[in-house]
């Protein structure tokens, strides 16, 4: 029996002597990344001994959970130059994109119904915008230039008095190009338009600073930066301007009412952020 197991392990790990490299080689880190062993180590106690619900206020199990979540919030806030109250935990960047776009659309419906995005955005943004079109919103899909970047003059021309949101990604998931988000953020703030950026591929790789880059909403994913799948965050600016969102998931009022649902205490996002710094 022991021999059989050993053979199986050898076969599945497919180790071959090829110039010192172990095959197969994983070089698809935009799709996902492995959990860093240091992240995993920090996560493990929260599955068993420290399993408390972060919303349980009456006992030490709950307090331990809350402490873990607050540490996570501090670290992720520090990574992008935000404050802890501006971080909303989600199930991943797709949910963060949905919450940012649909949340602004519903909350600011009386102000306007126009949203601007770009044709090379992730489907989580494009399909969300397409759904809003069915509900009477108007969406401008900016083209990109041959180099993959949006033209700021195109953006300037697209903004009108009904524009409530601009959503342009920080780094593209296929071609890795970095959109001029600082310039876009500056332009949006001059025009009084909320700016969301899907920074899934950028956070932990290139500097993201919500103050310097004038970002109002930022989508973040753990599994793209050596954390586990199924957890992400949305940065929501609290002042100048204060951004308000309608929730897309209703329930117990977690995350200041913006995202209900028991928090993923063992998410490992804190150590992922710490390691990413």
């Amino acid at each position: 029996m022991a021999t059989e197991v050993t053979t199986l392990v050898e076969e599945t790990s497919a180790v071959k002597p090829n110039g010192g490299v172990t095959l197969p080689i994983y070089m698809d880190n935009h799709a996902t990344t492995p959990v860093d062993p240091r992240v995993l180590e920090e996560m493990l106690p929260y599955f068993t001994g420290k399993f408390g619900n972060a919303a349980s206020r009456n006992h030490s199990f709950g307090w331990a959970g809350e402490e873990a979540v607050e540490t996570a919030r501090e670290r992720i806030a520090k990574l992008i130059g935000a404050t802890t109250k501006e971080i909303v935990f989600t199930s991943g960047a797709t949910e963060s994109d949905n919450l940012a776009i649909k949340g602004v659309a519903e909350m600011y419906r009386e102000k306007g119904n126009h949203i601007i995005t770009a044709v090379t955005e992730h489907k989580a943004v494009l399909d969300t915008c397409k759904r809003l079109e069915k509900y009477g919103y108007r969406v401008t899909y900016l083209p990109v230039q041959k180099d993959g970047l949006v033209d700021l003059d195109d953006l300037k021309r697209a903004i009108d008095d009904k524009t409530i949101l601009v959503t342009i990604m920080a780094a593209n998931n296929e071609i890795g190009v970095l959109q001029p988000i600082a310039e876009i953020g500056k332009l949006c703030h001059e025009k009084g338009v909320i700016f969301h950026t899907d920074a899934t591929q950028a956070v932990g790789k290139v500097p993201i600073d919500v103050a310097k880059q004038n970002l109002d909403l930022v989508s973040i994913s753990a599994h793209k930066m050596y954390g586990p799948k199924g957890v992400g965050a949305l940065y929501v600016r609290r002042k100048s301007p204060r951004v308000q969102l309608s929730p897309i998931i209703d329930g117990g009022g977690h995350e200041r009412g913006m995202r209900s649902g028991t928090l993923n205490v063992a998410a490992g996002i804190p150590s992922a952020c710490r390691v990413a710094r």
Partner: peptide, 9 residues
């Protein structure tokens, strides 16, 4: 895509 403004990875 541009090599000038790009993720190094």
């Amino acid at each position: 895509g541009t090599m000038e403004h790009r993720l190094p990875q």
